[in-house]
Design a protein around this nucleic acid. Sequence first.
DNA 1: CTCTCGATTAGCT
DNA 2: GCTAATCGAGAGA
Length: 217
Amino acid sequence: MSRANAKVLAPLPRRLPAEAFSQPDPVIAARYFIGKTLFVRDLSSATRSITAGVITEAEAYGGAEDRACHGFNNRRTPRTEVMFGPGGAAYVYLCYGIHWMMNIVTGPANSPMAVLIRAVEVTQGADLVAARRPGVPRRHWSSGPGKVAMAMAISNAHNGSDLRDGSDIWLEDHGHVAEDQHVSIGPRVGVESAGEWALKPWRFLWKPPVPPELGHP
DNA sequence: CTCTCGATTAGCT
DNA sequence: GCTAATCGAGAGA
């Protein structure tokens, strides 16, 4: 291969800029992450294989006043500790004793904010995901926060990993554009007990356009 | 130590 | 639509 071709074919700089993680408003961050690609290395297998998926649903948590956030009122515990670090780390915790939830820590240090990844569309390693989710239809592989972890083999082994330049779990921009007209905004799921904070429209759901031939008259 | 509850899912009605 | 499963975190005594 010639030097000129090597330059043309060199990988694009796909990692996200640092500012994406230090963004002080978790709601803006959540919207920004829609359409970005999450890469995960399977730390539980000897092969340490990698799967990837485009983020299609996300929710914002944070600001010390957000009652739905684990860091509400600056509650600092072993579990929430990673949220008090600077943006860019993975916050992974166990929910309902069974399900792992994957979050992107955002904002400055000492300010607990995170974006929960609620759904992805698998774009790499579909064979691996199919093996992890036997009998499950593809459309249900990762259509929920617990399912995202199951599909991509995310667990507490990823908690605290640096998403900015790490190699166990990270984010890339592959040019998928989630246009406003296809992104619905609404209240967060499963946080009814958070009072008025449960009503905040901090959930973003990307529904790619329906092909014309499938549209209703 | 004990008690409560959860950023959910899957299966059945 | 309804609910059991499942267990660690966090709070309080």
